[in-house]
């Protein structure tokens, strides 16, 4: 043990103690978790109808539409994020439109559009939408449509069939999609550093800053990183039980 923890400080849990007694770091963690939860939930809600349409509408162009959905991924991540700056800035596309229509007086832009939590969540949602749509699409496309026909024959309405058959059977895809977004976004640091400003600063930024300066605080940085890893692992373990396909009637 001594060999493992040699050095000027030796083995200590003081950084963990400081972390759990720090309103700053825990506060930043919960802020990031809340932002990620909101992004993940909203993106899943937005992606589900898209995936539903593509998988079950019977359109012949579904793979073309799917390609259109993921087309933005053919361009640079940075370019896509920076494009939002042009749209969201104080003199950007949205605010200029509001000035032009007279909905906002010139010189009073909606500043919360950029360099804010909103900007971070919007850009993260945009970036991750295709990743969410794909697993839901796969789970819906593999759905046995004979079940829906049987439900219809037995007098179930379309809403009842969706609630009792489609949704439960696609639930693993929804959970997978949710985790696909939540896990990377809770530790995200590039998007907040580009469009987050001071209010959009996230837990991932703090980890980077603690390690990446000339006076790195490795103890605190390690504690923050391990805590994030632990929380993500626990959440994945909890959610993984939902990834198993269950019976249509639950």
């Amino acid at each position: 043990m001594l060999a493992l923890f040699s050095g000027p400080h030796g083995f200590t849990l003081s950084a963990w103690h400081d972390f759990f007694h720090s309103s700053i770091y825990l506060g930043l963690f919960w802020k990031s978790v809340k932002m990620s939860l909101i992004v993940s939930a909203l993106v899943v809600l937005a992606a589900y109808p898209l995936a539903y349409y593509l998988a079950l509408s019977g359109t012949k162009r579904k793979y073309v539409l799917l390609l259109v959905l993921i087309a933005p991924f053919l361009t640079s991540y940075l370019l896509r994020v920076l494009a939002w700056k042009v749209i969201l800035g104080d003199e950007g596309v949205i605010n200029s439109f509001l000035f032009w229509t007279g909905l906002r007086s010139s010189g009073h832009p909606i500043s919360a559009l950029l360099y804010s939590r909103f900007a971070v969540m919007l850009v993260l949602g945009y970036v991750w939408l295709p990743f969410v749509a794909l697993p839901i699409f796969v789970s819906l496309e593999s759905l046995d449509t004979r079940l829906l026909e049987a439900a219809s024959d037995l007098g179930a309405s379309r809403l009842q069939a969706f609630r009792r058959i489609t949704l439960p059977l696609s639930f693993p895809g929804v959970v997978a999609a949710f985790l696909f977004v939540f896990i990377p976004t809770v530790g995200e640091f590039i998007t907040p550093s580009l469009v987050g400003g001071t209010s959009g600063y996230m837990y991932g930024n703090q980890i980077v800053d603690l390690f990446g300066t000339g006076f790195p605080d490795w103890e605190t940085g390690s504690v923050l990183a391990l805590f994030l890893l632990g929380v993500i692992a626990a959440l994945t373990a909890v959610f993984s039980r939902f990834l198993q396909v269950r019976g249509a009637t639950g």
Binding site: K85, G89, E91, G92, S111, Y115, G197, T198
Partner: peptide
């Protein structure tokens, strides 16, 4: 809470200043 950005790159600062942010 008054501060919109904390700049690390001069290019970013100039761009933010020029765009009116």
């Amino acid at each position: 809470h008054l501060v919109r950005t904390i700049w690390a790159s001069e290019t970013d600062l100039d761009q933010q200043f020029a765009s009116g942010d």
